[in-house]
Design a protein around this nucleic acid. Structure first.
Length: 308
DNA sequence: GTCCAGGATTCAG
DNA sequence: CTGAATCATGGA
């Protein structure tokens, strides 16, 4: 298809700057699976129905998008937390007294939680179980290409639940989903009957939201925590994956703790922005930049939360 | 070939 | 209730 015209690069004003070295971790660090780096170092991606490109030049963060799309800048500002809400929340984290967190934060300054929509977060993390980030990106891209609405220039929105529910087996199999195809199908069929599910879920307090999410096929404790954090903006949510297990064992001495116990530790130790702390630890652990703590592990074992 | 991946589900005890 | 087996798939 003929390439549509794009706007020129324009500055994107955030309350705090994104360092050039941080753009990759921000867009491709395991939160969203929808951004691709171009040869020139800029990033192109889709979130919601918005197609956009981002880069960091000498002038700072810049964006561009299809000329006919009028809402792109506003959508980017919301997506990247331009208001700086998280910059203030960082101050509630115990980085002053916690050398592990402090080192992880200094390794990834300005790392923030992307404000994705619930639909994108749920689809992405339904595909995430037992898969590497690169492979998740391939699966999600295949879903969009084969079943999503075209947005021009070869880009596609993520498929609706209706499109997933009615997709034939061969199409889903061609997305390399493996056993996750049944997760997507089952969740699609349930949510197809609840067109306002996102609004209904968003009205719940976090504990109830996590329980409700776990009634969906393919959504267990970890995926629910990710969807709550990345899709519903619940910054106190603390997903525990294999990297976080490793990080908390190595750096905090929490060897042999089970995921549910580690989740309780994370929420208690990091507080209202635990999910943001988790993202620092996740990035640091994944890139081998984790610092070992002299922090004494807590004596008392937190009781895991009751399961429904 | 073996092991692992931003795990969830099912089953045995 | 807890712990192990199983689930597809691809890369290291």
């Amino acid at each position: 298809m003929a390439s549509a015209e794009w706007t020129p690069w324009r500055p994107l004003r955030l309350a705090e700057a994104i360092p050039a070295s941080m753009l990759a971790e921000q867009l491709d660090g395991g939160q969203s699976f929808r951004w691709t780096e171009s040869p020139d170092g800029s990033w192109v991606g889709v979130f919601g129905r918005t197609l956009a490109a981002l880069r960091v030049s000498a002038q700072g963060l810049e964006w561009r998008g299809p000329k006919q799309a009028a809402h792109t800048e506003a959508a980017l500002l919301a997506y990247l937390d331009a208001a700086g809400t998280q910059a203030r929340l960082v101050e509630s984290l115990p980085w002053r007294s916690d050398p592990v967190l402090r080192a992880a934060r200094e390794a990834y300054p300005g790392l923030r939680i992307l404000r994705q929509d619930p639909h994108e977060a749920l689809i992405g993390f339904l595909c995430s179980s037992n898969k590497r980030i690169l492979q998740i990106r391939v699966m999600v891209a295949a879903l969009a290409t084969k079943l999503g609405e075209p947005l021009g220039e070869g880009f596609h929105a993520l498929p609706t639940w209706a499109a997933i529910a009615s997709a034939d087996d061969a199409t889903l199999r061609a997305c390399s989903l493996g056993y996750r195809a049944a997760y997507l199908r089952g969740t699609a069929k349930l949510l197809l009957a609840r067109p306002r599910w996102a609004e209904e879920f968003a009205a719940l307090p976090t504990a109830a939201l996590l329980e409700e999410l776990q009634t969906l096929p393919g959504v267990g404790p970890k995926v629910a925590a990710c969807v709550a954090l990345f899709g519903f903006g619940r910054l106190e949510s603390f997903p525990v994956d294999t990297w976080v297990v490793q990080a908390l064992a190595d750096a905090y001495g929490l060897h042999g703790w089970k995921p549910a116990q580690l989740e309780q530790f994370g929420k208690a130790h990091f507080g209202e922005a635990a999910g943001l702390a988790q993202q620092y630890l996740f990035s640091a652990a994944r890139h081998g930049k984790l610092v070992r703590a002299e922090v004494r592990p807590p004596a008392k074992t937190p009781r895991p939360r009751r399961k429904r």
